[in-house]
C-alpha cells in the first residue's frame, strides 16, 4: 500500500498549523549569517530555503549530554539521574539528506544493546521532511542512493509542487501529527516525479564508483592515503557537521561535592581519539585517521548494512578548512588500488 498523502497550500501553511496545534517546533532559522535549527514560535521565523550549516542530528544526539550525575556522600556515592529529554518536538523542514541521517543514527544507536539516552530523545521527535528543490554545488545525495525527495527518516515529507505542497504520511508518528492539523491538509495525491527529476538535474554530477566498499577495503595498505591526507589538518569540522557521524567521548566534570558524566561529540580525525593510555596509537598519523573516516563511511558500514554511512549532504566538503573532498579521495584511493 502506498503511503497516505495529503495536499496543503504551502510548507509554511503546514508549519503554521503545527504551531497552532500547540506543538513545540524546531526548524531552520537564520542566525548570524547562517542557517541553524532552533526553536520557533511563529511560522515566519522559519527559513525554509537552503541548507543549515549543521545537520539536524543535534536534537537527538546533542553536543553535550548528561548521562548521569553523582554526589559524593560520606561515605559512598549517590547516583543522580541523567538529563531530562526535551519536550516532544516537531523537527520541521528537515532536508531528505538530514532525515536519512537520522535514520542511520537510529540504526546505530538502536542496535542492541541500545543506547538509552539517544532513544529517550529520539522518541520525542517527529520529523517533518521537506524535499529539496535547490541543490547546492556540494550536494551529492544521488551518489549515495538517495534523492532530493527521498523519504528515509521522515515521519511526514513535504514536497513543494506547482499547485501547493504534497504531504506524504510515512509513519504512525506522522499520522498522529496529521490528526492534529485539521483543515490545513486536504486528502489528495500528486506526482512528485517531476520535482525529483528537476532537482536531480540541477545537481552537479557526482557519483561513487561501483564496488567502492570492496575497492576501499583492498586499498587499505595503499600509500595513496598519505598523499590524500596531506592537506587534512585534523580538526573535527567534517564529523561535527555530518548528519551521520556519531562518535563520542565520555568525560567526567566534577568538583569536591559531586559531578556528572557527560557524553560529548568526538571525531576520528583528532589524534587523541584512539590513543591508548600506554602511548600506543593504532591510528598514529593523519593518513590512518582520514582512511578510517573514508572507510567507515564507504566500506565498513556499507559492508555491514548495505548502504554508505553518508547521506550526500556534502557539508563536510563545503566546510572543510583545507578543501578535502571525501568523495574524491575515496574514489581515487579505490581506483588507485591494484
Amino acid at each position: 500500500m502506498s503511503p497516505t498523502t495529503y495536499l496543503a497550500d504551502s510548507a509554511q501553511a503546514v508549519l503554521t498549523a503545527i504551531l497552532a496545534a500547540g506543538q513545540r517546533v524546531v526548524a531552520p532559522v537564520e542566525q548570524a549569517g547562517l542557517l541553524a535549527f532552533a526553536h520557533v514560535e511563529q511560522a515566519e521565523q522559519a527559513q525554509l530555503i537552503g541548507q543549515t550549516r549543521a545537520s539536524a542530528k543535534e536534537l537527538a544526539f546533542p553536543r553535550t549530554q548528561r548521562l548521569f550525575g553523582y554526589r559524593f556522600g560520606n561515605p559512598g556515592v549517590e547516583l543522580l539521574p541523567g538529563e531530562e529529554p526535551p519536550a516532544p518536538t516537531v523537527l520541521f523542514g528537515v532536508r531528505p539528506c538530514d532525515a536519512a541521517g537520522l535514520a542511520i543514527l537510529d540504526g546505530v544507536f538502536g542496535a542492541e544493546p541500545a543506547d538509552a539516552p539517544y532513544l529517550a530523545r529520539r522518541a520525542r521527535i517527529t520529523v517533518v521532511g521537506l524535499s529539496c528543490d535547490q541543490p547546492q554545488a556540494h550536494c551529492a545525495c544521488t551518489a549515495v542512493g538517495l534523492s532530493p525527495t527521498a523519504t528515509d527518516g521522515s515521519d511526514l515529507l513535504l514536497t513543494p509542487l506547482a499547485e501547493g505542497v504534497l504531504v506524504e504520511v510515512l509513519t504512525a508518528r506522522g499520522a498522529a501529527l496529521v490528526d492534529l492539523l485539521g483543515e490545513a491538509l486536504r486528502p489528495g495525491a500528486a506526482d512528485k516525479a517531476e520535482v525529483t527529476a528537476r532537482a536531480e538535474a540541477a545537481m552537479a554530477p557526482r557519483a561513487l564508483p561501483a564496488g567502492l566498499a570492496d575497492g576501499l577495503a583492498a586499498a587499505f595498505g595503499e600509500a595513496a592515503w598519505a598523499d590524500a591526507a596531506a592537506r587534512c589538518l585534523g580538526c573535527g569540522t567534517c564529523a561535527f557537521v555530518c548528519p551521520t557521524c556519531h562518535c563520542f567521548d565520555v568525560v567526567d566534570e566534577s568538583n569536591l561535592r559531586g559531578g556528572q558524566r557527560l557524553r560529548v561529540w568526538d571525531a576520528c580525525q583528532f589524534g587523541l581519539f584512539t590513543l591508548h593510555a600506554s602511548g600506543h596509537n593504532p591510528r598514529a598519523d593523519q593518513a590512518a585517521r582520514y582512511r578510517q573516516r573514508a572507510l567507515h563511511k564507504f566500506s565498513y558500514y556499507p559492508r555491514a548494512h548495505g548502504r554508505p554511512m553518508c547521506v550526500g549532504c556534502g557539508r563536510c566538503v563545503n566546510a572543510c578548512p583545507a578543501g578535502m573532498d571525501i568523495f574524491e579521495v575515496a574514489a581515487t584511493a579505490a581506483a588507485g588500488q591494484g
Binding site: Q31, A32, L233, G236, F270, P321
Partner: peptide, 16 residues
C-alpha cells in the same frame, strides 16, 4: 554568549 554557545569544539580554529 550567543556566539560561544554555537561553538562545536571542532577546533578548526586551532587546526588552521
Amino acid at each position: 554568549q550567543a556566539q560561544f554557545d554555537r561553538c562545536l569544539r571542532c577546533y578548526a580554529c586551532r587546526a588552521v
